[in-house]
């Protein structure tokens, strides 16, 4: 995949973004593809029921000395991509912190299996290309539920494509081979471990709510907006809606 010319990938991403529809102002949820999204949701939910949830339960029973190195390894292999996004967002400090973290954990932390950098206070500054696009002013676009990946938006889906196709890890010759070769299976295993750790929260949304599609959509959009730091101003009357005004009607 990494053999694709970078310019082509960027062009594709730009094309995808140009197609992003703009949400009407003040609307919490912009979901013109709801019919299709709901069908994807049903498939994702079925896959969770037969595969991800049972595997997650197994992982939750495994001792942490087994599961934590997998999560550490996967997070570490993702750091070079995160550093690029830090830089694209102008976050030099985050890029420096993540770079140092990558060097320390890949060497002292044995290919990233351990997290000595975290132990000395070098936590990851998490970000991705979806966040970079947001920083660059791209609109969020419509809500999408992606097969296998779950809730997303047009902007975040374009970001995912770029993050996968333009992973700088592929071009870092100095990095030991296993870090590169095992990064994808480790990523999959990490999803399983996290599904196990967040067991009851996930179950509540997927299996205990009356409309799991609508709940997942609402939670994803709100949490993602929060994560992207688009914190509402203290004067934002759309965000700070007033239930008392409605009662008085």
């Amino acid at each position: 995949m990494s053999s694709l010319p970078h310019s082509l990938v960027l062009l594709l991403a730009a094309g995808a973004l140009a197609g992003c529809s703009v949400a009407p102002p003040g609307a919490e949820v912009h979901d013109p593809y709801e019919g299709l999204n709901r069908r994807v949701h049903a498939v994702n939910k079925a896959a969770d029921r037969v595969a991800l949830r049972p595997l997650g339960r197994l992982a939750a029973q495994a001792p942490e000395v087994v599961t934590q190195p997998v999560v550490n390894f996967s997070d570490n292999a993702g750091l070079p991509g995160t550093v690029v996004n830090n830089l694209l967002q102008g976050d030099v400090e985050g890029a420096a912190r993540n770079s140092l973290r990558f060097v320390v954990n890949t060497t002292v932390g044995v290919l990233g299996l351990a997290d000595p950098a975290g132990a000395i206070g070098l936590q990851e500054v998490e970000t991705d290309f979806g966040a970079t696009l947001a920083r660059w002013g791209a609109p969020e676009g419509a809500y999408l539920e992606l097969p296998g990946f779950g809730p997303s938006t047009e902007r975040d889906a374009a970001g995912r494509v770029v993050d996968i196709l333009l992973d700088p890890l592929d071009g870092l010759g100095e990095v030991p081979d296993p870090v590169r070769d095992l990064s994808f299976p480790a990523k999959v295993a990490e999803q399983v471990v996290e599904r196990g750790q967040l067991g009851s929260t996930f179950d509540e949304i997927l299996y205990e709510s009356a409309d799991s599609y609508a709940q997942a959509r609402l939670i994803y959009l709100q949490n993602r907006r929060f994560e992207l730091g688009q914190a509402p101003a203290a004067t934002d009357e759309d965000y700070y809606f007033d239930p008392y005004a409605e009662t008085a009607e």
Binding site: E28, Q215, L218, I219, Q222, N223, R224, R225, F226, E227, P243
Partner: peptide, 8 residues
């Protein structure tokens, strides 16, 4: 974390 109880 940004997720609103009234709307949920």
């Amino acid at each position: 974390e940004g997720v609103n109880m009234l709307l949920s």
